[in-house]
Design a protein around this nucleic acid. Structure first.
Length: 669
RNA sequence: GCGCCCAUAGCUCAGCUGGAUAGAGCAACGGACUUCUAAUCCGUAGGUCGCAGGUUCGAAUCCUGCUGGGCGUGCCA
């Protein structure tokens, strides 16, 4: 995604190797190519090849017209790595295999253990990042669609901060849009004062859903006719195509079959759409109260828009209602963030930028970027067929306008180097336009990235929704995860050979950490660009690549300390004496040393799943070590001390890595 | 119509932006609990990386075409 060097620079074996290779590589290539040659040094793909491998001899051989294996030998001759590598090897067509020497690895691990950053340095060139994530519409309950943005954004913010960047996490709340007009309209006509007194947000949310349902009712009712006509048209298409006889020409027939298939698909789609419309209509028609409301408010869609417009124009009543509703809605959202342990530095919602919007349009007009078209103010861009509309023909502004105002503000206020928008992939075209305009207008240097992500699907591969077609509420989702986690915790504890160890309160706490961790981890462990299938059973199976596996690993480490009566503070004060004798110890240590590599990989393309993959590998190495290397019953005191230190470092890295994902650990499970 | 994205084991997914014999987890099968927590470990089986070309020492990865799916597409956000 970006070419800058994000590799943290302390105790990073890969970085050290690259440093050692740098001058030699420079002899072969111009400065510009050195980096790409160095990037060919990477962790060995297979343990049999050693720890790291350099693949640069093959392209160089080609370039120089020499045999790659000769080039590899030449490179090895020149490069100074005797102190780091015990063994080097040229394999296959010219792979350089590097094995890190034991003494050096020992000393590196000891340094990491003594370091409160577990061996991870700070980036050389810190930057100022604005992270724009979560951004729910207030007054609408948060649903499953908000989870990815929130969790991915939070994790990136934590990781960037840890590596030394300045981060401003900004929750760009939707607090000014059409949903407020709907709520205001609902409040004016349908509010149940008693319910409102009791729980304001719950009532507001009911009002939102009610108004939305009535709007949808009329829209669906009006749409039935045209949908019916569309089906008829599709049917004629299908019938016409079905009557066509095969021509005998293979190509022609194939084309025809394809057209028929598509027509049938479209027909099925149209029928489905009609069914949906019918469902929305009958839901209201079948309910006396709803039906009465609908008849009394035939113009509800337009009226709600009008309430929004009045709010924006400064209408006193609507403004007062907005002032009354907003803090309560924010509190309600805050409750979700509190349980998710997600924090923001600022929460400047859309309303914050409202007064800046005329200036945006005027500014773009002034420099000739914006022009009028069909009554709207538009910015036309060469690369795009459609313009970015910044002011509607009725004078209202759009989210594109707000987004531009937001960039202006962020540049002025924080002089940002990069702004990351953690928003789902469907908005990619919007962001392409936004970035193009912002860079062309008055933010030429800032790096703007759309950190897009895929959709959360159900087990049938369709967007995750409730049976009635609504989005699944986020809080209910979290509750369910915690409930399931509690069951697993209890079942496991009851089944312990020496009887249960955990009281009710402890079980609840563990269920809370494990349940929330499972949800977050399921999300973060997938490549963010893919859609993924949401499944409680998968994530709560608590096996395989799940947060629970890592948390379990951590708990086992703590269990060793508990059983052995080890004082952690004392252990950490004592001199570091990790010696890696056993194969499993060495493998574990090597993985521990690669933590900073993993974090660098996260920032390369802003993908937290690079960290989950790493933690899973680390946890597997630890489990393997745990099986093979007794700690408390080690063969002698030196080995025992060494292994205790190794366990402690592992526990710290796991806990730290999970913390960067926004996930906690517990001492016992 | 145009644009963007996706297709990897029965299932869910990785694959570090061109490297060695394509990996994990689940499910299946076979082993390991007088234990530092078996929420674990060890092993077996499972693949024409959608299809066809191309680029090159080397392709799941890059390019072209095709097939199948998703999303977006002038006044919602």
């Amino acid at each position: 995604m970006r070419p800058k060097d994000t590799t943290p620079n302390t105790m990073n074996i890969l970085a050290e190797l690259k440093k050692r290779f740098h001058d030699v590589m420079a002899e072969y290539a111009g400065d510009s190519d050195v980096q790409s040659l160095l990037d060919m040094i990477r962790p060995a793909q297979d343990a049999r090849f050693g720890d790291y491998q350099a693949n640069c001899a093959m392209p160089l051989g080609k370039q120089l017209g020499k045999a790659p294996r000769d080039v590899a030998a030449e490179i090895l001759e020149k490069v100074q790595i005797d102190d780091i590598c015990s063994h080097t090897d040229i394999a296959g067509p010219g792979f350089i295999n590097l094995t890190v020497c034991q003494d050096w690895l020992n000393s590196q691990v000891n340094s990491a253990a003594a370091d409160n950053r577990v061996g991870v340095g700070l980036v050389k060139d810190p930057e100022t990042y604005i992270l724009d994530y979560s951004s729910p519409n207030v007054a609408k309950p948060m649903h499953v669609g908000h989870i990815r943005s929130t969790v991915i954004g939070d994790s990136l913010a934590r990781t960037l901060r840890f590596l030394g960047h300045k981060v401003i996490a900004d929750n760009h709340l939707g607090d000014w849009g059409t949903q407020f007009g709907m709520i205001i309209y609902g409040y004016k006509h349908f509010v149940d004062q008693q319910a409102y007194q009791q729980h304001e947000v719950k009532e507001l949310s009911r009002l939102y859903r009610l108004v939305n349902q009535l709007i949808e009712y009329w829209k669906s009712k009006k749409g039935l006719g045209s949908q019916q006509r569309q089906i008829e048209e599709r049917m004629t298409d299908v019938e016409r195509l079905e009557r066509v006889d095969p021509t005998g020409d293979k190509k022609e027939d194939k084309k025809h079959a394809k057209a028929l298939g598509r027509a049938r698909g479209q027909l099925a789609q149209a029928r489905q759409a009609l069914e949906l419309l019918h469902a929305k209509v009958t839901a209201v028609d079948g309910d006396q109260q709803l039906y009465a409301y609908a008849q009394q408010h035939p113009d509800i869609a337009r009226s709600s828009l009008l309430e929004t417009a009045k709010l924006h124009e400064g209408d006193v009543t609507n403004r007062e209602l907005w002032e009354e509703f907003l803090p309560k809605c924010r509190e309600d959202i805050q409750r979700v963030y509190t349980r998710l342990n997600v924090e923001f530095d600022v929460e400047y919602g859309e309303s914050f930028y409202h007064e800046m919007l005329p200036g945006v349009v005027a500014g773009l007009q002034e420099v000739g970027l914006a022009s009028e078209s069909e009554g709207a103010q538009c910015v036309f861009l060469e690369e795009f067929e459609t313009p970015m509309i910044i002011q509607k023909s009725d004078g209202a502004y759009l989210y594109a306008t707000t987004d531009l105002a937001t960039i202006n503000y962020r540049m002025k206020e924080w002089d940002a180097d990069e702004i990351l928008y953690v928003v789902d992939h469907r908005q990619s075209e919007h962001f392409q336009k936004l970035f193009a305009v912002a860079n062309a207008w008055n933010a030429p240097d800032v790096k703007l990235h759309h950190i897009s992500f895929g959709t959360v699907l159900d087990e049938n591969g369709r967007p995750y929704k409730t049976r009635s077609g609504d989005a699944v509420g986020l809080e209910g989702l979290l509750d369910e995860a915690v409930r399931k986690a509690f069951e697993v915790v209890s079942a496991n504890d009851d089944g312990k050979p020496n009887g249960p160890e955990l009281d009710e309160a402890t079980r609840n706490h563990i269920a809370d950490v494990v349940g929330h961790g499972a949800i977050k981890y399921a999300d973060l462990s997938h490549n963010r660009t893919s859609d993924y299938v949401f499944s409680y059973d998968k994530m709560m199976a608590l096996e395989g690549n799940t947060a629970t596996y890592m948390q379990y690993c951590y708990a086992r480490v703590q269990s060793i300390f508990r059983k052995g009566g080890v004082e952690l503070a004392e252990l950490r004060r004592s001199p570091r004496a990790i010696v890696l004798g056993h194969e499993a110890e060495r493998a574990l240590a090597m993985m521990l040393m690669r933590y900073s590599e993993a974090l660098g990989n996260v920032l390369d393309e802003y993908r937290p799943n690079q960290l989950t993959n790493y933690l899973f590998d680390l946890a597997k190495r630890f489990s393997s070590f745990f099986e093979q290397c007794p700690v408390l019953k080690a063969e002698d005191e030196a080995v025992k001390q060494s292994r205790l230190q190794l366990c402690d470092l592992t526990g710290r890295v796991i806990a730290h890595g999970l913390s960067l994902l926004g996930i906690g650990v517990v001492e016992q499970m």
